Simulated scan of single mutants.
Amino acid sequence: MAGARPVVVGVDGSPPSLRAALWAADEAARVGRPLQVVLVNDAPSREARAEVDADDAAERCRRAHPGLAVLAEVAAGHPAQELVRRSEGASVLVVGSHGHGVFREALLGSVGTSVATHARCPVVVVRGTPRSEGPVTVGVDDSPGSQVALRHAFRWAADRRAGLVAVQALPDAHFTAGVYPPLDPQEIRTRADLHLAEQLAGWCSEHPDVRVHRHVANQHPVEALCSVAEDAQLLVVGHRGRGGFAGLLLGSVAGGVLHHAPCPVAVVRTG
């Protein structure tokens, strides 16, 4: 696809980053975009090793998808800053959950979280063992930004011919004792389910082939999302969400699922 924004993956030579590279190759092949494999090296003395690791990751991707346009590159600089800079021209930025190789500093959790927070495109943090089956799970609140997360979640589900599970966590008032006046649990659940159906209506019409399941959870958002995502191939969350169901798409929740989700997590900037 001439002129298409590439799928960009950050690698560091570790097994988690190689899994991230293969996930990114699958995504690039699925949507018909080129793949850019980037290793950010912040130590000139390791330049030779950096070239080897970047080329190895790229070659694995080429073997997995013959014909896929794959470019390997070693960049100098601070890993998080450089990957965030690359996100300006990327369709999606992919990283592993933890690095354990010589360049382990590049993709440790703190850097991955920083990239997911500041990137200008969706960021996928590849956790666990990626699977090619199962639904796409998405967290929903009543913020305008939630529609951005839904747009990406429906697209990913449609691209994968997968179902979609939309999760609406109940307000903090329901599970935080002694802070708010007691509310009727059934009333809260009914209101949340109705609001969830309203948020999904337009996207269901736009993607009639995507099977949608609504899930209203009487749990903290992080716990609810990670539980529902046990059999998911991708969990989609936003950050900087606002609204009556406050907290679902805030950074603290996105950070929580990045550390605990059982599957790859896509973080979509909604602000």
Rank of each mutant, 00 (worst) to 15 (best):
V9R: 03
G10H: 05
V11T: 04
S14E: 04
P15M: 12
R19A: 11
A21C: 13
L22C: 07
L22H: 05
A24W: 03
A24K: 01
D26G: 12
D26H: 12
D26R: 12
R30W: 05
V31A: 02
G32I: 12
L35G: 03
Q36M: 13
V38D: 10
N41S: 09
D42Y: 08
A48V: 14
A50F: 08
A50R: 04
A50I: 11
E51Q: 14
E51F: 08
A54T: 11
D55I: 08
D55T: 11
R63E: 14
A64L: 09
P66R: 09
P66A: 13
G67E: 13
L68C: 00
V70N: 06
A72T: 12
A72Y: 09
E73G: 04
V74F: 03
A75V: 15
A76T: 15
G77T: 09
A80G: 11
Q81D: 15
Q81F: 11
R85P: 05
S87V: 04
E88G: 11
G89A: 12
V92S: 02
L93Y: 05
V95T: 06
G96R: 01
H98M: 09
G99M: 09
G101N: 04
G101C: 03
V102P: 07
V102E: 13
R104L: 10
A106E: 11
A106S: 10
G109M: 10
V111R: 08
G112T: 11
G112Y: 01
T113I: 11
S114P: 07
C121Q: 05
P122N: 00
V123S: 03
V125D: 06
V125G: 06
R127F: 02
R131P: 08
S132P: 13
G134F: 01
T137S: 08
V138E: 03
V138T: 06
V138P: 01
V140L: 01
D141E: 09
D142C: 04
S143Y: 00
S143M: 08
G145P: 08
L150G: 02
A153H: 02
W156Y: 13
A157W: 03
A158S: 13
D159V: 10
R160F: 07
R161K: 06
A162I: 01
G163T: 10
G163Y: 05
V167P: 03
A169C: 11
G178T: 09
L183G: 07
D184Q: 06
D184T: 06
P185M: 07
R191K: 14
A192K: 02
D193S: 12
H195S: 14
H195Y: 13
L196W: 00
L196V: 01
A197P: 03
L200N: 00
C204V: 15
E206H: 10
H207C: 07
D209L: 07
R211W: 14
V212D: 09
H213N: 14
H213T: 15
H213Q: 15
R214Q: 14
A217D: 10
H220P: 05
C226V: 13
C226N: 10
A229N: 07
Q233V: 06
G244Y: 06
G251M: 10
G251R: 04
V253Q: 02
G255S: 15
G256N: 07
L258D: 02
L258A: 02
H260T: 13
P264M: 02
V268C: 00
R269Y: 05
T270M: 13
